[in-house]
Design a protein around this nucleic acid. Structure first.
Lengths: 202, 202
DNA sequence: CCGGTTCAGTACCGATCGGTACTGAAAAGA
DNA sequence: TCTTTTCAGTACCGATCGGTACTGAACCGG
């Protein structure tokens, strides 16, 4: 029973790693992976380069940690939407969440999963690919949920779950781009509502 | 009558500026403004740094020239769509053109106007803003066209041209993101068709 | 052929990139 | 108090960033 997981020998860390990660997330969110430099990041985190490397490994791992935090925080609407009772409610919750997260007054405009690294040089390839996978995963989850809706009779028997999921994901991605360009929450909510008129689109 | 605009004294340029600009466009398209380095650009253009600076000024002006070329070339579907006879035909031509341009087999996936600079550091600010304006301009043109359609009775009297334009532009931006993530032309054409079912969305 | 002009290329500029070795202090256990 | 461990900070690494001075050669009109 050596349950003593605490009391690590040596000098304890002098900063809150969670708080520092949150600050890094905001910088990546605003400037993207390649646009955010170590100088920006460490300045915002309030720590030195050395402390960052000791705590998080390197810039790429820091970004991945920030992406995880983003997924469980600002982007948690994605998982939450899947629990809605009907396909329309799922799609609606997903798009509404997208609108709210991309237009938060206390965070950068847009979506980290989109503007984090949409196009990049060779150096940013791994993160670019990670974000492609991140977006694809969300689309797959939506498709699975819509497939269940077809099975349950909530969607017409002829409906194509993958096509519907791709459509919803496309609108969400478009909302992210619009938000990055300065579109307001009200304007984007109108877009989300418009996208869901006459649901399901046959 | 000093009409002699040709015959510039001195050694003539040893490369085709249009061809070089086309190559630069492809690099910016693939890697984005900040992701594309002078080394990448000049290597693809087949000229040296000096020649590039002499011919185009600097990196930012080179990008603006490339964006102009993109607008008049691969993205010319935007202006062309406006000449369609009905609002539905306009929206359809716009989205179909978006799908084709973002999934050309002979060019990078996605849209230069989106992935050229969606998020960036301080250095890329001017180009970021230029692309926001570029996308906004397209949306405004669409809204004007839809307003005309309302006046002509082609769209219902109660329709909101700006809202419809924003919706179409959002879907087009989403298509660009999807294409950047590897979506196929067929998949995105399905998305475009889905977005236009039951047009106009009241 | 010659003088003038503009080309292309090398070599380099200061600044910044991500990442690290080294120093010295702070805190825990003994 | 002493030893050990890990902290934080300075200073620096080679590489690359965008941009430029300088060198010669190539081409023009005369």
């Amino acid at each position: 029973m050596t349950g003593a997981k605490k009391a690590p020998v040596g000098r304890p860390r002098g900063f809150d790693a969670d708080e520092a990660l949150e600050r890094a997330l905001l910088v990546f969110w605003e400037k993207g992976y390649e646009g955010a430099g170590l100088a920006d990041l460490t300045a915002a985190m309030g720590i030195t380069r050395t402390s960052m490397y000791a705590a998080f490994g390197n810039k790429e791992q820091l970004f991945r940690r920030a992406l995880d935090r983003y997924t469980e925080g600002p982007a948690s609407y994605g998982e939450l939407a899947l629990t809605e009772p009907t396909a329309l409610a799922v799609a609606s919750a997903f798009l509404n969440g997208s609108v709210r997260t991309t237009t938060r007054p206390d965070a950068p405009a847009g979506c980290l999963g989109v503007q984090g690294s949409l196009a990049s040089g060779e150096a940013g390839r791994p993160i670019h690919d990670a974000l492609v996978e991140w977006r694809t995963a969300a689309e797959v989850r939506l498709a699975e949920r819509f497939r269940r809706a077809v099975d349950e009779g909530d969607l017409p028997a002829g409906a194509d779950p993958r096509r519907l999921a791709r459509y919803i994901m496309t609108v969400a991605n478009g909302i992210a781009v619009q938000a990055a360009g300065g579109a307001s929450r009200g304007e984007l909510q109108e877009v989300a509502d418009t996208a869901l008129r006459n649901w399901p689109p046959v």
